[in-house]
Design a binder for these strands. Structure first.
Lengths: 127, 127
DNA sequence: TTCCATGCAAACGTTTTGCATTTCG
DNA sequence: CGAAATGCAAAACGTTTGCATGGAA
């Protein structure tokens, strides 16, 4: 993987937007705003490569995929009402949990990502 | 909600395909194969209504949404390699699990669906 | 008779791809 | 120099929507 200016720009944008779980379009927008030259296809290709390498985590929400730098292994919890994505640190999750699911399903969950779909506190109080 | 022939056809297809977690297109195909008259848009609209009513569960995998009759509340575990979706009965999931995540995130997870992304047994042995 | 449901086709937003061109190593 | 990465535009894909028509209640 070459160290191109576009690759740097994507990493920079991911850093800027870290915690906001941006979509490919949002990352593209953040890069263009800085007057960096990049194409949307390159954003997708770069993100795919980063996900492949494990540098970036991808979560699929409603209609688009959201990306995030994987500083540490974490899980995602998605609000089914507003779409907000919240992180839960993997180290905080009891290990018996994964063991339970592994026994139940035969899956290898060593590096599994749990995605919980619920209703966030904001949406619970607003309704 | 009216009891139309298309609605019956969708239910029939969901019964036939139960356990296979079909996409809207697959449901559409199963209906057309029987020479029933239906449009793809109707399949989507009908499935949406059923999900809204809680009769059908939707899981988003790679690129498409997969549907399943909700005979009982269950969770989904998706193989990141082959895309296979496996069910885990909700009643078998320790309740402390949801409680843990609720405390951690402030989400309301009363009826939450857990989606685990891992590598299934087949794919583990084949690699 | 009244609306809700339907079919069709067009629109939509996201993601992928073909191909000529650039650029890193 | 050669392989890999890029930009652009077009295409692909799943899904939604507008609107005229049909059918359940």
């Amino acid at each position: 993987m070459r160290n191109t200016s576009q690759r740097k720009a994507v990493l920079l944008a991911l850093g800027d937007l870290h915690g906001t779980h941006p979509t490919a379009s949002e990352i593209y927008g953040a890069i263009k705003v800085r007057n960096y030259q990049i194409g949307l296809a390159t954003v997708y290709r770069t993100l795919d490569a980063m996900v492949e390498r494990g540098d970036v985590a991808a979560v699929r929400t409603g209609n688009a995929v959201r990306y995030d730098l994987t500083h540490h292994h974490h899980h995602h919890i998605v609000c089914q009402n507003c779409g907000k994505v919240t992180d839960v640190d993997a180290s905080e999750v009891p290990s018996e949990l994964l063991t339970f699911f592994e026994g139940e399903t035969g899956f290898d969950l060593a590096d599994a990502t749990i995605q919980l779909n619920g209703i966030c506190a904001d949406c619970t109080t607003t309704r």
